[in-house]
Design a protein around this nucleic acid. Structure first.
Lengths: 218, 218
DNA sequence: GTCTATAGCAGGATAGAC
DNA sequence: GTCTATCCTGCTATAGAC
């Protein structure tokens, strides 16, 4: 924390480029040679700065993914604080705003969810770090939803609801090629806004969205 | 097709064991040496039977994943045919039944979704095969939902709804460790049934599930 | 802190005996 | 169709000069 920022620019470049490559291809498909080549530094730099390849991978989660998750959470809570009264609708909307439009650039967001998805669907040593990063946001959401729902509702039901929302956010970010094929849309600004509206609406009302309602936004 | 079944038992064993390993660890994290060791055959067997490692990977999708997807689709349509009248509820339920309880064993289902998830979130040469396997089911679903929804609804909205359902099915299957951590439940029979009920209910009504309704099944 | 050089090893693939 | 032996490439990691 004391000298990790702008000092040691090669160290930072290694973290940056390695993150992109790991997010795109996964840990095993990326070699130290490829990383140092893209980062335009020497082959030995990874071992000098991080000891070994795995440690570089873990350091990416510690120094990049976790802080980003914290920023996302802060954005979410700021959006919530701006609401006059809280409802499932406002919470979901604040969540989608923070997750899908939030404080990250498009590329940064893509990397972030790709890395999270990797650890979630195939846990390695970084899984613990990912869980620790997600947990606070999850607890916040749990608290909100619990206050909206009838009290006899089990905690587990609320947890599953939150997971269903998260499933969509992660899927629509990491399954881009499949989503493109199925919908025929490119991931441009307009389509991303359609996605946000969809996730919010579907999470609130599911398939009944356009049934028995006359005020759909379609 | 003529002599691929019980003939050449080592070829079959290679496909079986390689599929398990690829599903668990991904293409690059698995070596030919590991595969042939587990399949208890010679190191050269992979190259003899499949030419190279990548071809073995593709052959797993062609000869295992695609037929399985077809079986899932047939089960889904059989469930649907047993219904007297179709509604979003019956279609979703038939889908969840086929996908989560259907004709596959637990291990086979886990492998199946892990492999699908891999290609969907990080497409390689097998992506085309996966898409070709998914497309018919997708079109069937699209047709059903289109008939339920008001006609001015865009095709894209219907596609997004289907993707939201699929997102949950894939996520709850491939993110098991995270789901365990969050819910505190093991993936036993009871919890799987809870998951099916949840996915059906959430996909139908989203978070409004327990709101403004007195007949929730919680 | 950066580089070169290289050790040491694991991987994919092939040749050729059986 | 199966096996052994081997080639060769590419990898991680380290030693040591600068």
């Amino acid at each position: 924390m004391s000298q990790t920022d702008k000092n040691d620019p090669t160290r930072e470049r290694l973290l940056d480029e390695a993150e992109i490559l790991f997010a795109q291809k996964g840990f095993h498909a990326v070699s130290i040679r490829e990383i140092t080549s893209v980062a335009q530094c020497n082959l030995a730099a990874v071992n000098y700065h991080f000891g070994n390849k795995e440690n570089l991978y873990l350091e990416i989660f510690r120094s990049r993914v976790v802080p980003r998750a914290q920023r996302l959470r802060q954005t979410f809570e700021k959006h919530l604080a701006a609401e006059s009264e809280l409802s499932p609708s406002t919470v979901i909307y604040a969540l989608a705003q923070a997750f899908l439009l939030g404080p990250l650039s498009d590329k940064e967001r893509l990397r972030h969810y790709q890395l999270m998805m990797r650890e979630i669907s195939e846990p390695t040593g970084a899984f613990e770090i990912v869980e620790q990063a997600i947990r606070p946001l999850f607890d916040t959401l749990h608290g909100h939803f619990a206050s909206f729902m009838p009290t006899p509702l089990k905690d587990k039901n609320i947890s599953l609801m939150i997971l269903s929302v998260i499933a969509q956010v992660l899927y629509f970010n990491s399954a881009r090629q499949m989503v493109k094929r199925i919908t025929g849309s490119e991931y441009d600004v307009q389509f991303k806004n359609e996605l946000i509206n969809h996730i919010v609406a579907f999470s609130l009302k599911g398939l009944s969205l356009y049934q028995g309602e006359k005020d759909g936004d379609a």
